[in-house]
Design a protein around this nucleic acid. Structure first.
Lengths: 152, 152
DNA sequence: TTAATTTTGTAACCAAGGCTACATTTGCGT
DNA sequence: ACGCAAATGTAGCCTTGGTTACAAAATTAA
């Protein structure tokens, strides 16, 4: 098969590059990823602080299902990003920004779970799927979920 | 603050490790990731083959919004995983397994988009969110979406 | 107080998914 | 048939997120 579908030299320079629309979707989806970890961690930290009084590395590791090494390195990044405050051998605390992020996430998580549940999905599955889905729910979609929930 | 919440030595050996339930959710969510790329690629390859007659590395790169180098390396992995057949400097073809995966994904994608759209979400947002959400929709949840759609 | 256990930290490795820079192959057009 | 641009491949680097193995600090218990 010859290569003859792209007019390599005849493409008008006006449109430098067909942005392919779809590429943008993928790009956003990839960028979301960067935030997912931060969101999961601050949420877990808030949870642990609420239930245990403080959040330690081991607890976080158990909660996230990874080793303490991974937690450690991730916390370093979250610290750089301004979401947590840590001191060696001490408990982990959320910054103001961290608290805010945690609150948003918790609210969104609850909404997504409730929404899925309202569709007749089992609690177990709703919880499971929400964990992955919530990070990709835009404000518009979240609003639609809430609207549905209010309609009983 | 002392560390006094975990009964380090008094934990009964019967339950070796409290699995923390939530850790499992995260674990699955992480495993899903491994499949997302494969799904996006086979879907794109199927698309390109359908619209252009064949799928080339450049097309794929444009579609995915990455460089051809990334595409190349990813294709090598997909080949190892048995989803595609490639030969140097030749077009990319899906294997039987690849086709099957692509079909499943296309169907699921369509369902998710239609479902979101049915909630009053704009087409643009539905498409955007679906890109991230679809990979985390379990069969049970997908079934619930379809049920809803049928109910008009 | 001292010893043992847990917790935390650090070093070093791996795979995935990005990238740039450079080399090679293809195939189109003159 | 030959040259040049586009497509493809390769080398090497970065970050993220995971690991194991080992070292140091902190807490608990004797």
């Amino acid at each position: 098969m010859p290569r003859s579908r792209k007019q390599p030299l005849t493409t008008p320079p006006a449109e430098v590059r067909p942005p392919a629309q779809q590429a943008e979707n993928f790009r956003r989806s990839r960028c979301d990823r960067a935030l997912e970890v931060a969101q999961d961690y601050v949420e877990a930290i808030a949870d642990l602080t609420a239930t245990l009084g403080e959040a330690r590395v081991v607890d976080l590791a158990r909660q996230m299902g990874v080793t303490h090494v991974t937690v450690n390195r991730t916390l370093a990044r979250l610290k750089r990003a301004g979401f947590v405050n840590t001191k060696p051998y001490r408990a982990i605390f959320l910054t103001r920004a961290g608290h805010q992020l945690a609150d948003e996430c918790r609210q969104r998580h609850k909404t997504v779970v409730a929404f899925l549940h309202s569709l007749g999905i089992s609690e177990r599955t709703a919880e499971l799927d929400a964990e992955g889905i919530e990070h990709h729910v835009s404000p518009e979609t979240l609003a639609a979920f809430e609207r549905r929930l209010k309609q009983h």
